[in-house]
Design a protein around this nucleic acid. Structure first.
Lengths: 224, 224
DNA sequence: CACTGTGAATACCTTCACAGCA
DNA sequence: TGCTGTGAAGGTATTCACAGTG
């Protein structure tokens, strides 16, 4: 029943990755005053198929009502609980270059429960400067941040050459969840989870499709 | 043989998504002077299994030498060609809020072949202001950008409420590849490809794992 | 009756294991 | 001999189709 791709609580990784989308769709519906929603309608809003939505939700439990649908507020509560959004998650950003500063200034982290509590940099020149209302701290402060502030999530925004070293420092301090913006493959011990965000990769994937399409269009013209 | 998940040239979507990673690993190796690399070594650098790497590369053709490995420069050329990186891809960013400005300032787009040629905004107040060396243009300029500059990739960095409208404008102007930073599901006609980058989603996935781990640790303490 | 929850079927992706070739 | 390229096997994810139920 449970497999290698299942998470500790038996929820498949792919399902976990889709839950935030459902949560967002539900929040939108709830804000609009909808108290109940069918799998068909919620699936459409979330951009997935109704059967996939139902299968995903079935991993959390049976929170729907047959013949009716899902109670919006109930489902929001259940998904939030499953994702662990009932508590706050302190975040630290490591690397105050172009990207790090952009991330610090961008208010996208200030969503439900996530808060940037510290900015760090390995360069003594940068430490102590003030960015987006926070004093940049040295890497040596990491253990104290974990102990005192419960830091759980680290964001790596360093150049690729420094990423592994910063990752090691985060892991050594006790951070178990890392969001990596550096274009590098990070090596981490078991139990530490890394997710990667890479603009260059995304653009190259888009380029492939534009390229393929231009090709196809050209072939069509030649064939006609 | 070919399936629904295959791209026009018969390369599976998952493979396309991994090619940029191989390309980066290869570039690193080439810069270090390595002229040849085995699937085992390249796979390790790219963070995948050797068999997956070989299967992926086999979709592009037979560019390896049995008993030896892959010639670094040759493979770089072949993957670049497959991804369509042999030409330039002009990019426009739509939405000059917090995120859009951060993206415009961040030099992450300035990788091989990608160049931000225009910044756009729907707000007349913002149009005409200068950001990161470019004058912000009105949305009405989109068709001309596509015609005159060959704009092919649009980046949406607007608030979610404006995202669909901007997406429609991009599509109407002829843009077929969209990178969406807004937390919304975009509806697009067939032939248009959308990729999504969402910090909130990434953080929530990480929260799930931290949460699950805290749970597991707690259970262990109780059980002991 | 309408819609959920779920076994069964299908499609897809990854890994295995080895044939084939420099 | 050593490593690639690939059919076959195994495992995962998605869709189908319908039994179950408020």
């Amino acid at each position: 029943m449970s497999s290698l791709h299942d998470t500790p609580r038996g929820i498949p990784e792919v399902t976990v990755a889709r839950l935030p989308g459902y949560l967002r769709a539900l929040t939108t519906l709830a804000d609009a005053g909808q108290e109940s929603v069918s799998s068909e309608s919620l699936a459409a809003t979330s951009g997935v198929s109704p059967s996939m939505l139902r299968k995903d939700l079935s991993h959390l439990g049976s929170y729907g009502v047959r013949g009716v649908g899902y109670e919006t507020s109930r489902l929001i509560a259940e998904i939030s609980a499953a994702l662990g959004l009932t508590r706050d998650w302190p975040v630290a950003i490591v690397g105050m270059g172009n990207l790090g500063r952009a991330l610090a200034a961008y208010q996208g982290f200030a969503v439900r429960g996530f808060q940037v509590i510290a900015l760090l940099d390995g360069d003594a020149e940068v430490v102590g400067t003030r960015i987006a209302g926070l004093d940049v701290q040295p890497m040596a402060d990491l253990p104290a941040l974990v102990t005192r502030s419960g830091l759980a999530i680290g964001v790596i925004a360093t150049p690729p050459s420094a990423a592994q070293q910063c990752c090691d420092a985060l892991v050594a301090a006790g951070v178990r969840s890392i969001l990596n913006f550096a274009p590098t493959v990070l090596a981490v011990p078991p139990g530490v989870i890394v997710r990667k965000v890479d603009l260059a990769t995304e653009l190259q994937i888009l380029a492939f499709h534009s390229h393929a399409q231009a090709h196809a269009a050209h072939a069509e013209v030649k064939g006609a």
